[in-house]
């Protein structure tokens, strides 16, 4: 991607893509690949699947270039496609009878390190990751979009094609479920236990 490509707006790149300019797709890919990949990874918890979703997402951009509305931002469309592809992958994975217990095996981090390397903070972090993985898919998607991508509730509602109230409700109950799962962890952190914060 050249320096000049960085400043080209998405709408112009899509117009070029509509004229079969594959380099324009390359610029879009470079611009959004990390966002798409990390969103998919946070939802499906599988790096190989996340890469497949990344590829499929941009294949859809290529295949549907003529139908993309250039007057609207591209990011929400990409997020929506990513979420839908993640849903599809998880549905197929579920049908392949992957035991729920194996989900925790997919979590990277100190769980796979030697016990003496696991610190208290790391253990709490792993507990939070496990709790997020155990949320319902709808709640997990909202958590990922809100915390990982720093999207507003309005943006998330547009991506998921839901009312803002529904998004707010899912986020609220996701936080409640996480709070319930981590109740003891939240309690005995020194800052909270001694009332410093």
């Amino acid at each position: 991607m050249s320096r000049s490509d960085v400043s080209v707006p998405d709408s112009e790149l899509i117009r070029r893509l509509q004229e079969a300019d594959l380099d324009a797709l390359g610029v879009l890919f470079e611009r959004y690949r990390q966002r798409v990949y990390r969103t998919a990874l946070a939802i499906v918890r599988d790096p190989a699947a996340a890469e497949d979703i990344l590829q499929d997402c941009f294949l859809k951009v290529y295949a549907n270039a003529q139908r993309i509305d250039v007057s609207r931002p591209l990011a929400p469309w990409l997020y929506r496609v990513t979420v839908n592809l993640s849903y599809t992958w998880l549905t197929h994975a579920r049908h392949q009878r992957t035991p729920l217990e194996q989900v925790s095996d997919l979590l990277p981090g100190p769980m796979k390190q030697a016990p003496d390397q696991v610190t208290e903070q790391s253990e709490i972090r792993q507990n939070v990751r496990r709790a997020i993985a155990e949320l319902s898919l709808d709640q997990r998607v909202v958590v990922v979009l809100y915390y990982l991508n720093n999207l507003s509730l309005q943006d998330i509602a547009e991506i998921l094609d839901l009312p803002v109230g529904t998004v707010k409700s899912r986020l609220f109950y996701a936080r409640e479920n996480l709070r319930a799962a981590l109740g003891s962890n939240l309690g005995w952190l020194p800052e909270v236990a001694h009332g410093y914060i």
Binding site: Q34, Y37, R38, P47, V128, V144, Y147, L148, L182
Partner: peptide, 12 residues
């Protein structure tokens, strides 16, 4: 805690 838990994905 949630932000930290998703840090791996954020940096991936």
């Amino acid at each position: 805690l949630i932000y930290e838990a998703l840090l791996d994905e954020a940096l991936s």
